[in-house]
Write a protein that binds this DNA or RNA. Sequence first.
DNA 1: TTGACATATCGGTAATTATAGATATGTTTG
DNA 2: CAAACATATCTATAATTACCGATATGTCAA
Lengths: 100, 100
Amino acid sequence: MNLKHATEIGKCLSNQTRFQIMEWLKEPEKHFPPHETLKHFNDGVCVTYIQEKTGLSQSTVSTYLTNMEKCGLLICTRHGKWSYLKRNEETIKLFTEFLK
Amino acid sequence: MNLKHATEIGKCLSNQTRFQIMEWLKEPEKHFPPHETLKHFNDGVCVTYIQEKTGLSQSTVSTYLTNMEKCGLLICTRHGKWSYLKRNEETIKLFTEFLK
DNA sequence: TTGACATATCGGTAATTATAGATATGTTTG
DNA sequence: CAAACATATCTATAATTACCGATATGTCAA
């Protein structure tokens, strides 16, 4: 973790919807309906569910999630036509340790 | 700490200069010259020193610091005509705990 | 292969933020 | 009180980000 990387993460956390997504993903089963094909949330939540919950457009949320993945806040796993997102606790830890 | 407050902090940390200030203030004696009137850095560093180190204008840095104080990232102590800024470790802790 | 669906990217406009200079406020000192 | 100095606030413009609709890409299932 360096200053530039940490600032990129700061940018992601500078928007209430994006920060909210990070919070929702702490407990997916609490905030999202179960997926049709997957029985668990091991790889997180699909883009559509997140998008619907935010109330923003598909393109906006897709861009959010892409950037959040780029800076390492989220991990994206593809299963068929779905992309599942989960928190990257490793990066979160590095970020918080860098800050304090 | 709630989502709105955490996002305000995120905004402060979304700019490289502001994040840098947080880092400098971890070890003031390492990054700033000693003050003329105060022998220690117990209350942090004066605005002028921070401003000079950033290379940005006085008004810009003053606004940065004001906002960083408003969201609780910094503590401002006035000594005569100088304002001294130091990190607010309490808020930083609450923020990092909220995120993880 | 084609249609349906999930996600990503592009291109544009509105909103917000960055940043500075000018000016105001508050404090010390002569 | 007046001058000098430290900091804060105001006003304006440039740069960036927010957000959407349209379109492209990728995948599955018939």
